[in-house]
Amino acid sequence: MRHTISVLVENEFGVLARVAGLFSGRGFNIESLSVAPTLDPAVSRMTIVTCGDERILEQINKQLHKLINTIRVIDFTGQDCVEREMALIKVSAEEDTRAEVLRIADIFRAKVVDVAPRCYTIEVTGTPGKVGAIVELLRPMGIRELVRTGPVVLGRGPKAVEK
């Protein structure tokens, strides 16, 4: 099963390598990983999408905790949360497909952020499912390049996990 986990870590030298090394060394999956500082510049927040059964997830959670630089680990699976991912999609826009590309972008409330002759770059934000859907719709038009950030996630409501 797919799990989205937030990890608050001390913003220290090598901490990303520690987390990545833990996953590779113990044979855990990483589907995506995003990381940036939080409000407190001494703390970074990682969002990791991984998969595995209950036993593996329990190990991932505990092993992450065991790293000295890890402050908190939150598994958002089954929790009420907002999950968003961004993608930049460089898609062919030929005379006969240009209108369709724009129409699809419009439906997904995506923006054209760069225009070249016969090529648009589209920025889209949404749940990983929504991003996947626009990618599939644009695929027949000819996607030249695609970059996804991997999701980030916050719990709903006023409660915060940082401090």
Partner: peptide, 13 residues
């Protein structure tokens, strides 16, 4: 530090 990361409890540079 890179080499010993998986075999130390923690390490520092």
């Amino acid at each position: 530090v890179g080499i010993t990361r998986p075999i130390t409890k923690h390490n520092y540079l």
